Simulated scan of single mutants.
Amino acid sequence: MKNYFTLFLTLLCFTAFSQEDGDTIDRKIRATVINAQTDDPMESVHVLNLNQVIGTITNEKGEFAITAAVNDTLYLTFLGFKPQKIRVTNDMFKFEDTKIALTELAYALEEVIVRPYQLTGFLEIDVKNMVVNNGYQYSISGLNVGYEAGNKTPSAVTKVLGAILNPADLLRNLFGRQPNQMRKLRKMKEDDQIRDLLASKFDRETLVELLQLEKVDIEDILSNCNYSKSFITTANDLQILDAISSCYEEFKVLNREK
């Protein structure tokens, strides 16, 4: 009986310690996002849990709730404000009055005249001066993805086939050294809040944080998957995410066949 009692106390203490520590326990964390300059609550701020790849947005009072564990990293973004990364602590679970302040970015605007195409006002002339994206997507029977390969010429088609049959070593190195991050791609694509955020962004900053890749790595991945320079520089972050995901799925198929 004494042994049973000792075992019960041990289990009780272990449970209490685990709950206090909270490192592996997922719970809802609640906090309020405010403007650092005015202390006003901020509505529609995107809050991402980078570890668990889930997202939410703040309500009209600046409040949000998101599932997290101790030591998870929250990434907060709002247009015109500096992104903020917050490490989750035990105190954030104990006290629900946590406030997170975002700092507004300062822009010095000067008079700028933008004439990217040197338009004349005459339709016939201006149409000829417009830059045309000559990137084409190729679909190959048996594959569920397309490949963008520049001009529609026999050499472009050959480039596509070469990419499929002989995957670049660079892709293997990039995908191979971040296998856990690459596995998050599917979760990222399934989370509506993350997709909505990425659809409105073009700076790759959120993708860098989610995938733990450098911007140059993202560009290298897409280049070696035969996406055009025009697509890489002009696509929004959601399109880039979908392109990387398609490339990664094809890479896994090719790796299994090797």
Rank of each mutant, 00 (worst) to 15 (best):
T24Q: 14
R27E: 12
D217W: 05
S44F: 07
L105G: 04
Y75W: 14
P167W: 03
N35G: 07
P41W: 00
E190M: 13
N144F: 04
R172Q: 14
Q181H: 15
G135P: 00
A235T: 06
T32Q: 14
D191P: 07
I29V: 15
V70M: 04
T32F: 08
I29M: 11
E96G: 05
A199R: 11
N144A: 05
Q118G: 12
E214K: 13
L213I: 04
G55E: 05
K187Q: 15
S18M: 13
K189I: 03
A69H: 13
K128V: 11
V208T: 10
L197W: 01
L7W: 03
Y227N: 11
V112L: 15
A156T: 02
D40V: 12
R87Q: 12
R186G: 11
N90F: 00
V127M: 14
I100C: 03
R27Q: 11
L109C: 13
D126H: 01
L119T: 05
Q193M: 12
K128M: 13
A106L: 09
T24P: 00
K99Q: 12
A106V: 15
G176Q: 01
E20T: 04
I221C: 07
I25G: 09
E205Q: 11
G80T: 00
F251Q: 09
N51Y: 06
L11C: 06
V112F: 15
E205W: 00
D126F: 09
E219K: 08
E219W: 04
N224H: 15
L102M: 14
K215C: 11
E110Q: 13
T32V: 09
Y248C: 02
V33T: 05
L222E: 05
S245N: 14
F231Y: 04
V132Y: 03
A16Q: 08
V253W: 12
A16L: 12
G150F: 09
P41R: 06
N144L: 08
L76S: 07
D91S: 14
G150S: 09
R115V: 04
K85H: 08
M92S: 00
D40L: 05
C225D: 11
K128S: 13
A149E: 03
K28H: 15
R256S: 14
K99W: 05
Q181V: 10
L12S: 10
T73L: 00
A31F: 10
I34M: 08
T6P: 00
D203F: 04
E20D: 05
N129K: 15
L241S: 02
E60L: 11
A108D: 13
K258F: 14
I232H: 03
L207N: 07
Q118I: 09
K184D: 14
E43T: 07
D169L: 11
N90K: 13
Q181P: 04
F251M: 10
R172I: 08
L12W: 02
F122H: 09
G121V: 07
N129C: 06
T15I: 09
N129A: 15
L241K: 05
N173L: 09
E209N: 03
R195C: 14
E205K: 08
E43C: 06
E20L: 10
Q239E: 06
E20W: 15
F231N: 01
F17L: 15
R186Y: 11
A101H: 06
